[in-house]
């Protein structure tokens, strides 16, 4: 691999133990490289799938993106429920299974990442939406997939995201009466609450 060779060279020039291969490669090439294509990781079938997804969700003004080698669309949080339903019902996407619902905290907004899996044909699509801290509410997709139930309760527990229309958002991983949202970046690592 050319990339690997690159890494080897730079690490020989800079023998410090803490310099990572990739960071060294970045600094060696300088910052005036054009910004990387966000869709670079996609294969041709991935691009095709992304095209279909964009077509299915066109009424929700999606923007095309990629999560590494998975096609990904970004949509507004108001359209999450409708978009998920459309993805499940469309036979080309066939998003019959919700594999994962990840919540990522970026200190002033959250990102919710829905990973949808079709079993036949085998393909994965990602829907991503931004949820601001000030109004951390998004509609629940439990009516689309039952699997969303515990994922959403977990995200509610750890991050304080409210899922509108969820049947029961009682604490799942934490105990009743726990204060704060331990998944958030601001939550301290080394403090304990008396139980």
């Amino acid at each position: 691999m050319a990339q690997d060779g690159d890494k080897q060279d730079t690490s020989e020039q800079q023998p410090e133990q803490t310099v990572s291969a990739s960071a060294a490669a970045h600094s060696a090439h300088g910052a005036d490289e054009p910004p990387a294509d966000p869709l670079a990781g996609l294969s041709s079938s991935g691009r095709e799938l992304l095209g279909i997804t964009m077509d299915v969700l066109k009424e929700f003004s999606p923007s095309a993106d990629a999560l590494d080698d998975l096609p990904q669309v970004k949509i507004d949080r108001r359209h999450v429920l409708a978009a998920c339903r459309a993805m499940k019902e469309d036979h080309r996407i066939n998003g019959q299974m919700l594999l994962c619902l990840a919540c990522v905290d970026f200190s002033d907004y959250f990102q919710l990442i829905y990973i949808l899996q079709s079993l036949n044909p085998e393909q994965t699509v990602v829907i991503r939406t931004d949820v601001p801290y000030s109004d951390a509410t998004v509609s629940s997709v439990t009516s689309v997939w039952q699997a969303a139930d515990w994922y959403e309760r977990e995200a509610h527990d750890l991050f304080g995201v409210d899922f509108d229309g969820h049947p029961d958002l009682s604490p799942l991983l934490l105990y009743d009466g726990f204060e704060g949202f331990p998944g958030r970046k601001e939550f301290p690592f080394n403090e304990y609450q008396e139980f």
Partner: peptide, 18 residues
């Protein structure tokens, strides 16, 4: 590992692996 015992600093980005 070809990285030896260095402290790893992967490039910024995200992956989903299963």
């Amino acid at each position: 590992s070809s990285l030896g015992r260095r402290l790893l600093r992967p490039p910024a980005g995200e992956v989903y692996v299963r």
